[in-house]
């Protein structure tokens, strides 16, 4: 699904990612942990196509050279990033935005556009599954949303879009226990043999619910250690110092 080979990324001559390699097969769930500033969000941004990085290395996504694809083409081909800090966009109605996004992706995949009613039915159902208050659908996108509401809104988008490869950047940070379970439920509901996940987190708690296949530690811009759930438990106890 996703094969990262010797990926480096620089901003203003500062190296942030430094020869990172990682392979994620269809159906696998990988977790990435790592200290603040180690480059986790940078990895997520580079994969989704954010501009402003000087990049070297190779990334294959779904049998394509990822760097040949524009930002929106990556989304059209099933790559999804739940942002660590979802943006507030004044004046843009949340429901309207969700429909525009979903239809843009459907269109690129030759699927029929959903009309307002069809969309509303789907979004209401997904929102209730995720215990999201429907009222936020009528509000301006993320404007004045609580931290938790913003994160849940990202998961709502993920469940609407049903991506092939979802990257979650600290979606669990700042969530209460119930919300954490909802996010885990959202991920587990989508989990299947074809769909892959890359979950960036600081806490073992989310991983207890999701049970990833692999856990990696990102330090100084590369994968310093890989393992399974036990690695997350070790980190929880001993921190990053011993690695």
């Amino acid at each position: 699904m996703l094969e990262i080979n010797n990926l480096s990324a620089k901003v203003d001559k500062k190296t942030i990612l430094n020869g990172l390699s990682l392979k994620i097969k269809p159906g696998e769930v990988h977790a990435i942990m790592g200290p603040n500033g180690s480059g986790k969000s940078t990895l997520a941004n580079v994969l989704s196509g954010k501009k402003g990085y000087e990049i070297s290395g190779k990334v294959n996504y779904d049998d394509k050279d990822l760097f040949e694809l524009a930002i929106e083409e990556r989304a059209h081909r099933g790559l999804f990033l739940a942002f660590q800090y979802p943006l507030e966009i004044p004046g843009v109605n949340t429901s309207n935005f969700l429909k525009t996004s979903l239809n843009a992706i459907r269109k690129s995949n030759g699927k029929k556009q959903l009309d307002a009613l069809e969309f509303l039915k789907i979004v209401k159902q997904k929102a209730s599954e995720l215990k999201i208050d429907e009222k936020i659908l009528h509000r301006q996108l993320n404007v004045g949303f609580s931290g938790g509401e913003k994160k849940k809104n990202e998961i709502l988008q993920m469940s609407l879009i049903e991506p092939k490869m979802a990257i979650l950047d600290e979606t669990d940070s700042g969530l209460d226990i119930d919300a954490l379970k909802i996010v885990a439920k959202g991920v587990n509901a989508l989990r299947n043999k074809k769909r892959s996940f890359l979950i960036i987190t600081h806490y073992q708690r989310l991983l207890d619910y999701i049970k990833p296949d692999f856990v990696h530690v990102l330090m100084k811009g590369k994968i310093a250690k890989s393992g399974c759930m036990e690695l997350a438990e070790e980190l929880e106890k001993a921190g990053y110092e011993k690695i």
Binding site: A70, E72, A75, I89, P90, G91, F97, T100
Partner: peptide, 23 residues
């Protein structure tokens, strides 16, 4: 970037932001 990562092309993303701004 946020809007484009959700499948909107650059023109649509800008349009949505302009519309939001004036709305």
């Amino acid at each position: 970037f946020y809007l484009m990562s959700r499948g909107l092309d650059k023109y649509e993303a800008k349009k949505l932001l302009i519309k939001g701004f004036l709305t």
